[in-house]
Simulated scan of single mutants.
Amino acid sequence: MGEKLKIAVQKSGRLKEDSLKILKECGISIDNGKDQLKASAFNFPLEVLYLRNSDIPQYVEDGVADIAIVGENVVIEKQKELDVLQKLGFSKCRLAMAVPKDVDYNGLEYFNGKKLATSYPNSLRQFLDTNNLDCEIHEISGSVEIAPNIGLADGICDLVSSGSTLFKNGLTEVEEILVSEACLVANKNISNLKSAILDRLLFRMKSVLAAKNNKYILLNAPNDKIDDIIKVLPGMNSPTVMPLAKDGWSSLHSVITESDFWGVIDQLKLSGAEGILIIPIQKMVL
């Protein structure tokens, strides 16, 4: 049957859905039966282990799983010896400190001598030590946001995405400790055979991510404007230029990053570009 690379993913929740989605986008088909604890890919030497999110770093460090898709915040909090191979661009959030909205917050000194509730004591302690703050940490799991309302703490340290949960509990975010997204991590002592499989998987993931971060652009322009447009238009090497049926006109094709999109479009229009089309890219092999 041959060696298989074992990848751990969250057994339930949004991170599981996005993890399986990127594997599918990498062309990997997995039999995901209901309540399975593990499943094998049909067309790639990969076995998926469905584990509790907070346990994943330990399993990878111990070699039970070779690699995993897990939040950076969990990797930092658990303080395990892992190789972070690739940020994956989804499940973005931040670890932040929040206080009741009626508090007159005037800076980090507010927290000296206060009680803080969190599910991330290691990350919080590191932040407090870095800023020379003396606080009492209450480690709790579950609904951290309720702690100030029941008198357990003066503030909290928790993951924040939209901030709606803080708002509903009468809290306001005051300090950001770290930003996080899903990432691919690996055991530091992975075998040579499994490392070769991992290289193949990582190549596919990078191709998928590159496609998500870039757009294919097509435009028409008078031939006397081409040089000006090429100066504006970014690309992997140089834009492709093809003559149109209309005399004196050409079509230019290139790739632009998502972050450059609107700035480049404005410059292209000023340089004489017309009929600009932006097309998503499914895969991008670099």
Rank of each mutant, 00 (worst) to 15 (best):
K269D: 04
L5C: 10
L218F: 10
G163S: 04
S259V: 10
S141V: 06
A98P: 03
P234Y: 00
S12D: 08
V241G: 04
S40Q: 09
D199W: 00
T130Y: 08
N112I: 06
Q79L: 11
E173W: 01
V48T: 12
D154A: 12
L201C: 04
Q10L: 08
L116C: 09
L15I: 14
E77A: 13
D154R: 09
L82R: 05
V174C: 06
P243V: 08
R200P: 00
D18E: 15
A65Y: 02
V208P: 00
I22E: 01
D227I: 13
G13A: 09
C93A: 14
S195Q: 13
D66G: 01
S259T: 11
A8K: 03
G263Q: 09
I67K: 04
D31W: 04
K4R: 14
G113E: 02
Q282A: 07
G13F: 12
N189I: 10
I150A: 04
V75R: 04
N220R: 13
D55M: 11
Q79I: 05
L46C: 03
A196D: 14
M205F: 07
I156E: 06
L37V: 05
L184A: 11
I278G: 01
K168Y: 12
N223P: 05
V70H: 07
E274V: 15
D31V: 10
S29P: 00
E77Y: 06
N192R: 06
E61M: 07
C157G: 07
I276T: 07
M242V: 15
L270D: 11
I230A: 13
C93W: 05
E176V: 15
K16I: 08
L152D: 09
S143N: 15
S250I: 07
T257H: 07
P148S: 06
V285C: 06
Y216M: 12
L198H: 09
K115F: 09
I229L: 07
K194M: 04
R14M: 12
N192T: 13
N237V: 07
L268V: 01
G151F: 15
E17S: 10
L20T: 06
Y50G: 01
L277A: 12
S19Q: 02
A182K: 05
G272V: 08
Y120T: 11
L219T: 03
A182M: 03
G63Y: 03
D31P: 00
G71L: 10
S207G: 12
M205G: 05
S19H: 03
G155Q: 01
K231P: 00
V285K: 08
K114Y: 11
P148K: 08
C183Y: 01
V99R: 04
I226A: 06
